[in-house]
Design a protein around this nucleic acid. Structure first.
Lengths: 125, 125
DNA sequence: AGTGACATTTTACAAGCGTAAAACATTAAT
DNA sequence: ATTAATGTTTTACGCTTGTAAAATGTCACT
């Protein structure tokens, strides 16, 4: 299913691109390099691997490239999450929430948001 | 954090051991090999890597080993999940649930369980 | 037309991973 | 004691990943 497999480091670049919409290598480097203690060259490698995998596309703009995502963020997020749910929680969401609840790892905000969310779903039916 | 890093294939063996409590290599092989299309030798490699990492321990029993987990399942589950939440959902649980809700990926059971869960948490406070 | 400056593309390399066979050790049976 | 059977431990190997430098291409200016 993950037609295109993205490594963790690569996903950092993807996320920058997703939130920028499109960006030059320099933009991406500015966004992610120092935050991850990466050299410019490292980010460029990641960009190129993503290009080769077809996860992003490049369009020439003068002597530089403008990159934009091909992969769809929400699809990727769904795949990644579903993968973890499948491996750890029988493929369902509720058991994850239950686990975090049992471990006392639900913040008050989480509880508030969850309540609101469930309420809304109920209304909608 | 993940004191001990477990690869995906290794985690399959860990899960077998967690649910068995303790087991011989043969037991583990019976449990996971065919289900994953692995040869015996592959499972033995995974067992040994886990041993070297200190994720499991072996106790000699005649001419074979009895393996048992050292890593704690619930801790591992929490770490794995928290990692994904951190990377994709700002480190919180509710946004993951919201995402799945938006994508229409919450089963009726999920919704029922979540409602029950939230209710119980509320009572408890 | 040649040279800097800047950008992109190639190449590198060690560690980890998935996958497994080969080698080695130990016990049971002859 | 030897051998066959049964386990365990070592070794192997290609691929991906994280990390980055080297090489190459391309404008802009003299």
């Amino acid at each position: 299913m993950p037609q295109i497999a993205i490594s963790q480091a690569e996903s950092v670049v993807m996320q920058a691109l997703w939130s920028a919409g499109s960006a030059t290598a320099e933009d991406i480097i500015a966004e992610v390099a120092s935050a991850n203690a990466w050299q410019e060259a490292t980010v460029r490698t990641l960009i190129n691997r993503l290009l080769n995998k077809g996860a992003i596309a490049a369009e020439r703009d003068g002597r530089r490239n403008l990159y934009r995502p091909i992969m769809v963020e929400s699809e990727w997020v769904t795949e990644e999450s579903a993968g973890l749910l499948a491996r750890l929680f029988g493929g369902r969401v509720a058991p994850l929430v239950a686990h975090f609840s049992q471990e006392g790892k639900l913040s008050p905000e989480d509880i508030r948001d969850l309540k609101k969310l469930i309420g809304k779903i109920d209304d909608g039916q």
